[in-house]
Amino acid sequence: MTLKTLAAAGCAAAVALSGAAPAFAQVPPPATTTAPQVTHGAVPPGLCIVSVEAAIGGSAVGKFVQTRLQQLVGQVNAELNGERTTIENEGKTLESQRATMDQNTLEQRAAALQVKANALQRKAQQRERELQVTEQKAFGRVGEEMEPLIRQAYQAKGCSVLVNRNSVILANPAADITPQVVTALNAKITQFTFDRERLDQQGNPAGGAAPR
Rank of each mutant, 00 (worst) to 15 (best):
E88L: 14
G46T: 07
A42K: 12
A25H: 01
Q97F: 06
S59Q: 02
Q103H: 11
V50E: 06
V38K: 11
Q71P: 06
T85C: 04
Q70D: 14
T100V: 15
E79Y: 08
G62K: 00
T86Q: 10
A20T: 11
E88F: 12
I87Y: 02
L47I: 12
N81H: 04
T86C: 03
E79L: 13
Q97E: 15
V65K: 00
A42I: 08
N81V: 14
N77R: 13
T34C: 04
A21F: 05
V43R: 04
V50H: 07
A55H: 03
G58E: 09
P45I: 10
R84I: 02
P36D: 11
I56M: 12
L72I: 12
S96G: 08
E88W: 11
T33A: 15
T33S: 09
G41D: 11
H40C: 12
V43F: 06
L80F: 08
A25Q: 03
T39L: 13
E88V: 15
V73A: 14
A78M: 10
E90Y: 05
P30K: 14
F64L: 08
C48L: 13
Q75K: 12
L94F: 05
G46W: 00
S51I: 05
L69V: 03
A23S: 12
T33I: 13
R98M: 08
C48D: 06
V38D: 05
V52W: 04
K92A: 14
E95V: 02
G19R: 10
A78K: 13
V73L: 01
V38H: 08
A25C: 08
V43I: 10
R98G: 09
E53M: 03
G82I: 08
E88C: 11
I49Q: 07
V65G: 02
V65F: 07
E83V: 08
A21T: 10
S51Y: 07
V38I: 15
A35E: 11
N81F: 06
Q70R: 14
Q97I: 07
T93P: 06
L94W: 07
Q71C: 02
A55E: 05
V38W: 09
C48K: 08
G57T: 02
A25W: 01
E95W: 07
L47M: 12
A23C: 05
P44S: 06
Q66V: 11
T33C: 01
P29F: 09
S59H: 01
M101H: 00
G57C: 03
T33N: 09
Q75W: 02
F24N: 09
A54I: 00
V73H: 06
A54T: 13
I56T: 04
K63R: 15
I87M: 04
E95Q: 14
A55P: 01
G41T: 11
T93A: 14
A25G: 02
V50Q: 06
G57L: 01
T39C: 07
V76I: 14
V38G: 08
S18C: 11
I49W: 00
D102Y: 03
A20C: 09
